[in-house]
Design a protein around this nucleic acid. Structure first.
Lengths: 139, 139
DNA sequence: CTAGGGGTTGGAGTGCACTCTAAGTCAATA
DNA sequence: TATTGACTTAGAGTGCACTCCAACCCCTAG
């Protein structure tokens, strides 16, 4: 599988895949006769797992630690487990925090009682309002 | 209350408070005779709420929208409520996603069976491993 | 009266995680 | 054969959210 195909299958961009390889998050891929990366489908499992770590807010530096231990293989099991356990704990705390925020949000929303009907059927999410730096009125 | 005091009370740095004012997330603060910011304690409630939005992953651009509606006051209630409702939905989805990841993490950790005792009692979290760009070996 | 410890401003710098560009190679198709 | 499109590399650029700096001002205690 070439990089374009892997990009499609993994959801990462080819840019990101190369970047991950460069920093060591993905193992250095075998190249074919014309020095193009040739991937084995098994890489998808690893990318998917990295995605979970990312979703749960693990910084790349820590993923690198995990990746390094994984490449060392032998006898790093305990360290990997401990790393994941510490991460799990952080994620659990974060979830709890989010749930507390949701309660606050519920209260706040309940405060805006009434006004059941909506103006336009969902007006354009985000006018990409420019951040003004006070002095800079014109660009 | 001057900015240093507000920083202490709010948990934000004075830098951040000025930054938030600059971009419009905090209202322009009254200045005293020597043009130093003088805050009313009521600002803390707003900062705390902003903190909730931030914790739940709302980007600053969207907080600005909310802040702008709030400053306009009158008749923006419905829009503010809708904005918060959309945000709440995103947060709920995110929490669900995190919980799914936690299950994966549990499974993964369970896979690293045994190895009950730990080497060193918690070795230094993060050696701040440098991101290598392959070609750049020396800095 | 002077030293210290706040504060003020505009603007520059930082860290993270990508994202893209330029210039080139290569294989397959019109 | 010519061109298209996917790939290669090193390195530059982007967007976000701060974080800090330089040079200055102002008040209070010793």
């Amino acid at each position: 599988m070439k990089i374009g195909e892997l990009a499609k299958r993994s959801g990462l961009s080819a840019y990101t895949i190369r970047y991950y390889e460069r920093i060591g998050l993905l193992p250095y891929a075998d190249r074919d006769q014309s020095s193009q990366r040739d991937y084995d489908a098994s890489i998808l499992t690893w990318i998917e797992f990295l995605g979970r770590l990312k979703t749960t807010g693990m910084p790349i530096r820590q993923m690198l630690q995990y990746a390094a231990l994984r490449e060392q293989g032998a006898d790093t099991d305990r360290q990997r487990r401990e790393l994941l356990e510490r991460h799990r704990e952080r994620v659990r705390n974060h979830v709890a925090e989010l749930q507390a925020c949701l309660l606050v949000l519920d209260t706040k929303i309940a405060g805006y009682a009434g006004s059941e009907k909506r103006t336009k059927p969902h007006d354009a999410e985000q006018p990409r309002q420019q951040i003004r730096t006070r002095q800079a009125g014109a660009r």
